[in-house]
Design a protein around this nucleic acid. Structure first.
Lengths: 133, 133
DNA sequence: ATAGGGCTTCCAGTCACTGGAGGGTCAAGG
DNA sequence: CCTTGACCCTCCAGTGACTGGAAGCCCTAT
């Protein structure tokens, strides 16, 4: 399979697939003409990577998860630990975003949004106390 | 005021302040020794920027918001539009994260997390259907 | 022979900083 | 007067995970 085929089948752009080879996540063979030649196992790995990335795992997490996947002597606790740490980080980010969202929503509702210059949003951003939240 | 003073007062690292000058968000004067010399108005702007960034606005949004802040003929509708667009993006991101979170949480709960290799998390990542969600 | 599509590599850019090297400035203490 | 330490300066490179584009080769069909 050429890169275009695996791109279609894995849903990943060719650029991304080349990048994954660059950073050593996959090692496709080469045809005589220099084209990358992907086996089923490469496609499988790319699909794995695509799904792990879709769950928000970092590339380094993906590397770890793939290594665990290919390690017959893994313990599921190792996988779970990676996933739990990631979940914690997601929760943190969600909390951050929700806090921003709450402030922003309040400000937006306080703003008339008309032709006049008076604006509570700008007033809040420009307020002179030191509170960064 | 030197950069250290404004850093302490604004809560922004000196590096960030220099960066903001680089990209034209502020224009502090210079002392004879070459040091940046910040006026109250610079400090005010930096505080404004810090708060806008804390609400998740991009640098380009900050630029727009600062311009509006300094424009006596602004209409609050312009500010509100920027804020509303940003809110939409935050909501999108929250939704994405919550969807990841849900999947991840399910997988984590399905995983024993013991010394055995069997792991529903890896099984899911390696499943052979094309569903990327 | 040429046109098109696909493939290759390499370089640069994204976003918003952050770290570090290498060096100048200033006030205080010995 | 010298040194120490805390400042400050610029410039370059790196972060994460790609993405865009240029320049050029390969392959098939007309």
């Amino acid at each position: 399979m050429n890169i275009g085929d695996v791109a279609r089948q894995s849903g990943l752009p060719p650029k991304t697939i080349r990048y994954y080879e660059d950073i050593g996540l996959i090692r496709p063979q080469r045809s005589e003409n220099g084209y990358r030649s992907f086996r089923e196992s490469d496609l499988h790995k790319l699909a794995f990577l695509g799904r792990a990335r879709a769950l928000g795992f970092t590339i380094e997490d993906c590397r770890t998860l793939m290594a665990l996947y290919e390690d017959d002597h893994r313990e599921s606790a190792q996988v779970k630990a990676v996933a739990e740490e990631h979940l914690r980080q997601i929760d943190e980010k969600i909390a951050q975003l929700q806090s921003m969202r709450a402030t922003l929503d309040t400000l937006i509702h306080a703003c008339a949004g008309d032709h006049r210059p008076d604006c509570p949003i700008l007033q809040d951003l420009a307020r002179s106390d030191a509170n960064q939240a």
